[in-house]
């Protein structure tokens, strides 16, 4: 027998006029290696069929399951229940994003808006002949781009960010990191001036107050703060 754990979830359905935000407590037996994915799936199938949450890969790869776990934004699928000594866990939906229901929030719409704003794609001038050798890239440069490309758009940096709460259109660490990523990609022909046009304002690179919560909580351990500082310096210089 595992120990008994208690999971308290803030439930609310904003589309239902009868619904009010309410904490609901579930008690269940902990199994070895139990994650919040396993625990919530168990609750949904055997205790409360109405509980809503989002899980896709359940392996920390897709970024679908960010939520506040005892006040900290993190990926639920990577969170082991055994990490909580008293066996008491409180779950709230990620702030800043539009609530769909209970623990499910609309990160997709937010990320789409950000991506369109920062032109989150390779801009290039020449056509690629696919039958010819690929363009050469210095191995160290490819590794550097990969490092920044590891972001999974989970939204945890946004949910951790004070600017994002104050400024609805702030692109967040995720957006600034994305610009940094394209700015060092040799396939992208944009100049610093071009990037300044995209993010040279308070909703972009000058909105960050350097509180660093984004980097503290990033599940991919991206060095967001140094990238934001790097981009800011680069764009100011230009």
């Amino acid at each position: 027998m595992g120990r008994e754990i208690t999971i308290k979830v803030l439930k609310y359905n904003p589309t239902d006029s009868q619904s009010t935000p309410t904490f609901v407590e579930y008690t269940l037996e902990e199994t070895p290696g139990m994650t919040l994915y396993i625990a919530l799936t168990k609750i949904k199938s055997s205790i409360d069929h109405d509980l809503t949450s989002d899980f896709v890969c359940r392996a920390g790869i897709c970024g679908a399951c960010g939520m506040l776990v005892n006040g900290k934004p993190q990926l639920a699928c990577r969170t082991l229940t055994s990490d909580f000594e008293g066996g008491k866990i409180e779950l709230l939906p990620l702030p800043t994003f539009k609530l769909i229901k209970d623990l499910s929030v609309d990160t997709g719409a937010w990320m789409e808006k950000m991506s369109l704003r920062v032109h989150s794609w390779i801009e290039k001038h020449e056509e690629t002949d696919l039958a010819k050798l690929e363009k050469r890239v210095e191995p160290a440069v490819a590794d550097e781009v990969f490092e920044l490309d590891r972001c999974i758009e989970c939204g945890i940096c946004v949910a951790s960010c004070s600017t994002a709460i104050m400024r609805e259109d702030f692109v967040g660490a995720v957006g600034l990191n994305r610009v940094a990523r394209f700015s060092i990609d040799p396939h992208d022909t944009r100049t610093d001036e071009d990037f300044y046009e995209l993010i040279g304002d308070d909703d972009g690179i000058f909105g960050c107050m350097s509180l660093m919560a984004c980097e503290d909580h990033c599940p991919k351990n991206l060095s967001l703060q140094s990238k934001i500082a790097y981009m800011r310096r680069k764009l100011v210089m230009s």
Binding site: W121, I122, K124, T128, E134, K135, R136, V137, E138, P139, A142, D143, V145, F146, D149, F182, D185, H187, D188
Partner: peptide, 10 residues
């Protein structure tokens, strides 16, 4: 590669 996949390089 042209669309930005940072393939590991030789």
């Amino acid at each position: 590669a042209a669309w930005g996949v940072p393939w590991s390089r030789v």
